[in-house]
Amino acid sequence: MEVRTIKVFTTVDNINLHTQVVDMSMTYGQQFGPTYLDGADVTKIKPHNSHEGKTFYVLPNDDTLRVEAFEYYHTTDPSFLGRYMSALNHTKKWKYPQVNGLTSIKWADNNCYLATALLTLQQIELKFNPPALQDAYYRARAGEAANFCALILAYCNKTVGELGDVRETMSYLFQHANLDSCKRVLNVVCKTCGQQQTTLKGVEAVMYMGTLSYEQFKKGVQIPCTCGKQATKYLVQQESPFVMMSAPPAQYELKHGTFTCASEYTGNYQCGHYKHITSKETLYCIDGALLTKSSEYKGPITDVFYKENSYTTTIK
């Protein structure tokens, strides 16, 4: 009895394709271990004539594949690729409408935090270190965002349907971005203890939790000093293409032309909904596939993004 075979390709990165001759009487799992086709788990399936010449994702289970996976995804987590594939199996079914010149995501599976993050990423200057993220990001900007969303979920250790947080998501993504040249110098002034300067680099240099107003941050924000008295913390120097200011959701007025974009969060910790506000020729609110415009805006804002380049204080 002759062994019926077909020729397929296996890959971990969709760049390096490895030619395989597979036995049609055995499952993919018996031949390769966990195997995925377009995100779908085909591990328990036997090869079919229609699979001839198709590319299958496999887990990096030998040295060659491990090197290829690390170079593309910059992670050695053995569960990463499987999590990416199972997320992709959902995100490829989502709709990605162009809204006001940006790629958004039609609401499904509690994905409003991903839509808000995706919209924000198209408006701030950011370059990702893992080629996987950078490639998928370019495709997302062009309207094909399924891979990018699935990668975000995998890097953030999230599953489809789980509630997510924009600030946490951005923080994970910033860790995989090139923020080497970003720098922030802060000064804390206390009447009792004097003053202390701190220099922050990388992710810490672009994120701040405690106030939404970048102007206020430049002037000074009140913080408790270690001595128990009130101290003032203010920005001395900022070198970065953008800054992200966050605070627990509270009524906040966004003035046209003073910011790049913002995240609105309605609801409580267990259950809520994100919308995205962007400042173009007027203010726009993007909620999944829905767009509304207004000249002014007041609502429960939790993150505001500002364009920056270089700032030095005039406070002496």
Rank of each mutant, 00 (worst) to 15 (best):
G164I: 04
D13G: 09
V42S: 08
L179T: 08
T292L: 07
F242T: 01
T302S: 14
A69K: 13
K219G: 03
A117F: 02
G143E: 03
M245E: 02
I124P: 03
T35K: 09
A231C: 09
A231F: 01
T169Q: 03
E168A: 15
T278H: 07
G220Q: 02
H273L: 06
G299D: 12
S294C: 13
T192H: 12
Q175Y: 07
E264H: 05
H90K: 12
N178A: 10
N14Y: 12
T159M: 12
E215A: 08
Y155W: 02
L81W: 13
V8M: 14
L59S: 10
T314K: 15
V3K: 13
S279N: 02
R139V: 05
Y57M: 13
G299H: 01
M170N: 01
L200A: 15
Y137R: 03
S263D: 11
L119F: 01
K191M: 12
Q270P: 13
T198K: 14
L102E: 02
S295W: 11
V67Q: 13
P60G: 05
V189R: 08
Y214D: 00
V42Q: 09
C285F: 05
M209S: 15
A40C: 14
D62R: 07
P60W: 09
F217C: 10
E52W: 12
G33N: 08
M209R: 15
N147I: 11
N157F: 06
K93I: 13
C149S: 07
A136D: 04
F9K: 14
H90S: 11
L81R: 02
Y306H: 02
T55W: 07
Q238A: 01
M85Y: 14
K298F: 12
K183A: 05
V3D: 12
Q237Y: 15
T116Q: 08
A142W: 00
M207N: 03
V206R: 07
R139D: 12
F80S: 01
T55Y: 07
E281L: 01
V189H: 10
T55C: 12
K106I: 08
V67K: 10
N147C: 10
T278F: 11
M244G: 01
K280F: 09
I286F: 04
G272I: 00
G288T: 06
T314V: 13
Q196T: 14
K280P: 03
R139C: 10
L179M: 05
S310E: 15
Q31L: 12
Y84K: 02
R83S: 06
T314F: 14
G33Y: 05
I6E: 06
Q195R: 06
K219C: 07
E239N: 08
A117M: 06
R4E: 12
T198P: 01
Q20E: 08
T199P: 03
G33D: 00
G272V: 00
E215K: 07
M24A: 13
A136S: 09
Q237R: 12
D23W: 10
N61E: 08
C112T: 05
C156M: 07
E125G: 06
Q197C: 03
N187L: 11
E215W: 02
V206G: 02
Q30W: 13
V160K: 02
T282R: 08
V221T: 03
L186H: 05
F70N: 13
F70Q: 11
K158T: 07
D41A: 13
C182E: 13
W94H: 06
G39R: 04
S294K: 07
H273A: 06
S240G: 04
V58N: 07
A177F: 07
N268C: 07
N49C: 11
T258N: 03
V8H: 02
I223N: 02
V67F: 14
N129W: 13
A117V: 12
E52K: 13
L179E: 04
G257V: 08
L151C: 04
N129S: 07
N309H: 10
L17F: 12
E2H: 06
K54C: 14
V3E: 14
T260M: 15
T266V: 04
K229A: 13
C149L: 08
K275Q: 06
T10Q: 13
L121E: 00
F148W: 06
G53S: 12
I223P: 04
C225W: 03
K298A: 14
K229V: 08
E125L: 04
T226E: 11
D287I: 06
K201L: 09
P47C: 06
L254S: 02
C156T: 07
L179W: 06
L254A: 02
I223E: 11
L118V: 07
L235W: 00
D303T: 05
L88Q: 04
P241V: 02
A87C: 12
E144A: 11
I105C: 00
P249M: 08
I315A: 15
M26T: 15
K218E: 02
Y265G: 00
N89G: 12
E125V: 02
Y138T: 13
M244W: 03
Q31K: 09
L37V: 11
L65Y: 06
F259Y: 00
A140M: 12
V185D: 01
Q134D: 06
F70M: 15
T64Y: 11
M245Y: 10
M245Q: 00
D63G: 06
Y297K: 08
S25P: 02
I277D: 03
K255W: 07
T10A: 09
L133G: 04
